[in-house]
Write a protein that binds this DNA or RNA. Structure first.
Lengths: 355, 355
DNA sequence: CTGTTAGCGCCTTCAG
DNA sequence: CTGAAGGCGCTAACAG
C-alpha cells in the first residue's frame, strides 16, 4: 500500500539504514550509493513517515509559533518573519529537505488554549516553541505556564519569547525578546504633553495582560512626572485590542470627559476605531482631538491624517526569535533582550486648541 | 526519564491497552477503572507521545492550513476562523483532549514552498489540509499540486479549498469554496461606470494568480460591456498584493495617463497605497480621483474617506472550510460552492469632475 | 562506508 | 470489560 523505507532499500539494493542515512544527510554515504537511493526514492515516490521518524529519533522537525490573534498583523508580521528563518527556503523540488515545519497556533488570547497548544506541541515533541505577544498576568496561569515550559525545555524543546516579558524565574527559556512597551508609552505621552495637552484619555487593552499594563504604566509615568496624576481611572477605558473596542471606548471616554484634547490608544487598530468615533462626533483630528496609536502597523502611515504612533520592529524581532529557536543565533546576555520602541510623530497629533 | 503509557498502566494497576482505551475514549471502559487511570495520568503528569500514537494508529491529529501571507489579515481572518472550528474549545484544564492541532503554514505565495509544506504535512499524515487564497496558474505547478493533493487524499487526508477555485479535474478535493471574484470585480467597475467614470485605471495583483485574473476579468467584462475596450493594457499595472505596490503602481498609472478619474485596486491594502500616491500628487479622493478596493478588510471602513470595496465573507468562509475539513459539515453539491461578493459603496468613490 | 540488530511508545486485533 | 502479543516505520548504536 504505502511505500516504506524498506521498499526503497530493496529497490536500491541497500539496507534500510543506508536509505535513512542518505535521507537525513547527516552521515557519510558513497556518492554512487546515494545516487541509487535517491533514484529509488523518486521512482517509488517515497515520502518519509514523520511520526515513525520522530518516534525513533525522539525528536521532530516541528516548531510551534503561538500567537494571540492570527487575524492581527501585529502577530502575523512576527510569525511570518519567524517562519522565514525556521522554514528554510525549500529546494525548489517540492521535496521536503531538512527544514523544520514552522506552524502557527492561534490561541485567541485564551490562557486555556495557550496551555492546550503547548501540550499538543509537547506531544509532538516539537523542536522549539516561540511565544509571541503579551502574556496574561493571572498568577495561576503564570505558574502553569512556567511549569509547562520547564517540562518542554526538559524534553529538549527550545523555548523563545518574542514580544513578551521574561518569566519570573524560569530557566526554561532560551531567550526572551521583550518590547520596551513602557518606554514607548512614556515617550508617546511626553510628546503629547510637550504639545501642550493636559487632559489625555487612554483607551487601554484588556486587563491583566502585560502589554496592556506596561504601555499604560509608561503613560501614567509621564503623566505623573508632569504633575497630572489623580484622574487616571476616569480617563482610562479598557477593551480588547480591536477596532470596535477603540470605537466604543472612545465614545465612552468622551462621554465621561468631553474636554479631552488627546486620545492615546492601546495600539494602532484601536486608534483607528478611536478616530472613527471622534469623527462621528463631528470632531476633527488633530484640530479638535489628537490621536495616537502603538505598533506602527503598515496601514498607520496611510491613515488620514497619518497616525502618530510608536514603532515596534516586529519583523526584525520575529526573525530574530526564529533564529534563536533554530539555534542559529546566540542568545543575548542573561537570555533577555529589550527591543527599543521608537516614537513616530505624524499628522494625527498637534497642539490642543487654545481656549 | 520521560513517563510512558506503561508507567501509567503500572501505577493504575491495569494493562497498557486499558490506558490507551481510556485516553482515546473510543472504547468501553469501566467507570472505576477509568477513574483510576485518569488519576495515574495526573499523578505522573503523563503526556501522550504524538509520534508514537500517530505511528501505531496510522493517523494524526494535525490539520494544516496553508496561507499565502500570514501578515495579511485577508488570510489571517480565514485561518483564524478555520482554526476555531478545528481546534476545539479545550477543556479548560490545559490538558489536551481529542481536539485536532490546527497549524498554519505560510507559503509566502511561493509555489515551491506550497508543495514543500504539503509534503511535510503528508509526512505527518495530516488529518486534513485547507488551502486558502488564490492559486498560481503555472501549468507545471498545477499538475504537481493535483498530483500531490491526490496522494494526500489517497492517504486519507481531507483536502479543502477556501477562496481558491476548484482544481481542473481532481477528485482529491472534498470541497472547494471559491469567491466570486469575477462577479465582484464586474459589479465594482459597473458602479464606477454608473457614476460616469470612463477612464479607469487598474492596479492589479501579481500575474499568474487566479485571484488577480478573475478580478481583472470582471473589471474588463464591465469595461467591454460599456464599450470601453481597447485601452486595457495601458491602464493596468501589476504588482504584489501590498501597500507599497499600490503606491508605486498608482504613480506609474498616473504617469501613463494623467486623465484617469478612478483607480480600482487589486485589494484593500493596495488601495491604501494607491490613495497615498494620489494624495502625494496633491489630488483629492474622491473629488479628483475615486478609489476602490476589494475584500473589505476591517480597516477599510475607517479609511478616510471610507473605502468603496467588495466585501468577501472571509470569516464565514474560513469557518466553513474548517468544518468541512473536520467532516462536521456536508460538502456542497458537486463539491463546489461559489461564495458571493457584495459591493460596498462608501465615500471613496463619487462622480468624476465635470470637464 | 555499509549491514545487522534492537528498540522508540503506542494501538489493535485476538483471546479470555 | 480487560490483558497479552505483535507490529506500525524508522533510527541508532554496533559490528564489519
Amino acid at each position: 500500500m504505502t511505500v516504506t523505507l524498506a521498499d526503497v532499500a530493496a529497490r536500491a539494493r541497500v539496507s534500510p539504514a543506508t536509505v535513512s542515512r542518505v535521507l537525513n544527510g547527516n552521515y557519510p554515504v558513497a556518492a554512487s550509493t546515494r545516487e541509487r537511493v535517491l533514484r529509488a526514492v523518486d521512482d517509488l515516490d517515497y515520502v518519509l513517515n514523520g511520526p515513525a521518524s520522530a518516534l525513533a529519533a525522539a525528536t521532530s522537525d516541528l516548531v510551534g509559533i503561538l500567537v494571540n490573534d492570527i487575524a492581527d498583523p501585529f502577530f502575523g508580521i512576527m510569525a511570518g518573519a519567524a517562519q522565514t528563518e525556521i522554514g528554510g527556503p525549500g529546494d525548489g523540488s517540492g521535496r521536503a529537505g531538512g527544514e523544520k515545519l514552522a506552524i502557527v497556533c492561534n490561541t485567541g488570547g485564551s490562557p486555556e488554549r495557550e496551555l492546550t497548544y503547548l501540550t499538543l506541541l509537547q506531544r509532538q515533541r516539537a523542536a522549539a516553541v516561540v511565544l509571541t505577544g503579551g502574556a496574561v498576568e493571572d498568577p495561576a496561569h503564570q505558574a502553569a505556564m512556567s511549569a509547562k515550559l520547564t517540562k518542554l525545555a526538559d524534553a529538549g524543546t527550545r523555548v523563545v519569547l518574542c514580544g513578551r516579558p521574561p518569566l519570573p524565574d524560569s530557566e526554561a527559556v532560551v531567550a526572551a525578546l521583550a518590547f520596551d512597551n513602557r518606554g514607548g508609552g512614556r515617550r508617546l505621552t511626553e510628546h503629547l504633553l510637550s504639545l501642550g495637552h493636559r487632559r489625555i484619555g487612554y483607551v487601554a487593552g484588556p486587563l491583566e495582560r502585560t502589554t496592556t499594563r506596561h504601555r499604560l504604566e509608561g503613560h501614567r509615568d509621564a503623566m505623573r512626572a508632569a504633575g497630572l496624576a489623580g484622574d487616571e481611572e476616569r480617563l482610562t477605558v479598557h477593551g480588547p485590542y480591536d477596532r470596535r473596542s477603540g470605537y466604543d471606548a472612545t465614545h465612552e471616554l468622551l462621554r465621561r470627559e468631553p474636554e479631552v484634547t488627546a486620545v492615546v490608544a492601546a495600539n494602532d487598530t484601536v486608534a483607528l476605531g478611536a478616530s472613527a468615533a471622534i469623527r462621528d462626533r463631528g470632531l476633527r483630528i488633530p484640530e479638535d482631538i489628537s490621536v495616537a496609536g502603538f505598533d506602527d502597523l503598515p496601514f498607520s502611515v496611510d491613515a488620514v491624517p497619518a497616525l502618530t504612533t510608536v514603532r515596534l520592529p516586529l519583523f526584525e524581532a520575529g526573525a530574530r526569535a526564529g533564529r534563536l529557536a533554530m539555534g542559529k543565533e546566540k542568545p543575548p546576555p542573561g537570555g533577555i533582550a529589550t527591543i527599543a520602541a521608537e516614537l513616530m510623530v505624524r499628522g494625527s497629533t498637534a497642539p490642543p486648541r487654545v481656549g
